[in-house]
Design a protein around this nucleic acid. Sequence first.
DNA 1: GAGGGGCATTGATCCGCGTCAACGTCCGGC
DNA 2: GCCGGACGTTGACGCGGATCAATGCCCCTC
Lengths: 237, 237
Amino acid sequence: MPHAPCPNPNASGGCAGCRVRLISVCAVLAPDELLALEAMAGDTAFAAKETLFIQGEDADAVYTITAGMARLYKLLPDGRRQIVGFALPGDFLGLAMRERYGFSADAVEPIVACRFSRSAYSAFVDARPHLLRRLHEFATHELTLAQDQMMLLGRRTAEEKLVSFLLHMRDRWARLGRASVTVPLPMSRQDIADFLGLTIETVSRTFTKLAKDKAIAIVPDGVRLMNLERLETLAAA
Amino acid sequence: MPHAPCPNPNASGGCAGCRVRLISVCAVLAPDELLALEAMAGDTAFAAKETLFIQGEDADAVYTITAGMARLYKLLPDGRRQIVGFALPGDFLGLAMRERYGFSADAVEPIVACRFSRSAYSAFVDARPHLLRRLHEFATHELTLAQDQMMLLGRRTAEEKLVSFLLHMRDRWARLGRASVTVPLPMSRQDIADFLGLTIETVSRTFTKLAKDKAIAIVPDGVRLMNLERLETLAAA
DNA sequence: GAGGGGCATTGATCCGCGTCAACGTCCGGC
DNA sequence: GCCGGACGTTGACGCGGATCAATGCCCCTC
């Protein structure tokens, strides 16, 4: 549920002034289309740990994240969890546009998201093939990432998994204009473990080992990449 | 490379008579569009183990499989392999429509595939939003399957992996009109292992264990599901 | 600033699956 | 019908990462 004081980053300027517009699906929309979209959009804020939606629920809304990070995950009946992705500003939730959500999503840290009713958004897309094309590009990009993640989960060691993850996160932050050797990791160790198919203890031990080897330095809410060459060798192997 | 005697299943009737048309992306095309598509199509046959394309190559063609099974896989520099999917009749290879192939594909058994040059196909799609929509549905379906596979690879045990795989293959054959408790498995044990993130020995041992438990029976080129209830319990857990 | 709860780290031990090795089975060729 | 090679199965053993358990470290609350 949206929280009361909504620090809407789009408040001034609307969609045209949205700071994630150019990296989101909205980048392909013309000014008049942005205005039409704006009429459908509802900005919502979510507190840390708050739920956006749950796997199996009626998919009545789609979202573009404008601030913060969400985790997307599936659960087994016995509680085992697999995080299938982390959503950052500019990311679109609801590519599938199915009747029901295929995974659950909740906020790692406070989030602001642009919300659309699925039926309205679907009609909007149907009338705009260039937006559909954009959505398809996003979907195939996600599919490629998912296949990379299959390789990681099925065939890589714990150390390779963690290093690949760090380099991947660095690249994602870089695309958001936050290129740095310091990689923010707002998610918990448990989240990282559930993304990489490991346990929290193995994640922690592997971080410690990499830090001992001076490949990384552990800093508050993230890591600093100290030896990129070595890290890239570990990830490539 | 295509082999000489090409047993083209579409030869009589063209696209309109294609036996996978209604389950392929082509199902949404009108008769006149099928004729236009037919002019672009080239049917090709591949022998078992023959390569359709290799990861990283220029993606100059897209395919719809019309007969046989292909394996889609990624390799690490040291030879570790992850199979990201098996393609069956009706499946489309080239959803991404990127400059380069994101994975390699080769024939598990003799294949017949409908081949299109990527540039021509891309132009064809651009002029037909309903086909783009169909491709997007295929892409999001693949994405959902990929996320299920992430759950399987990251969080399931060897036995759960194998049972889930068997039930999944049964459902795929069923959608092709070959519903049966006997599940054909034309791929090798090594292929199954590389799909499930296991070794060939573990796959073999797990098959033997399931057969000893009378949950399955191992038959030439497949398995017979003997105790569906038990198998479904194992897969759900 | 004392208490407490959530998260992370570290150590000891265990075990599922990988590794290594031997053997069996099928099948195609000559 | 014998041979050879590819593929599959089975057994013995080892290891990477899971499990179990204790401790540490924040940070929040009162």
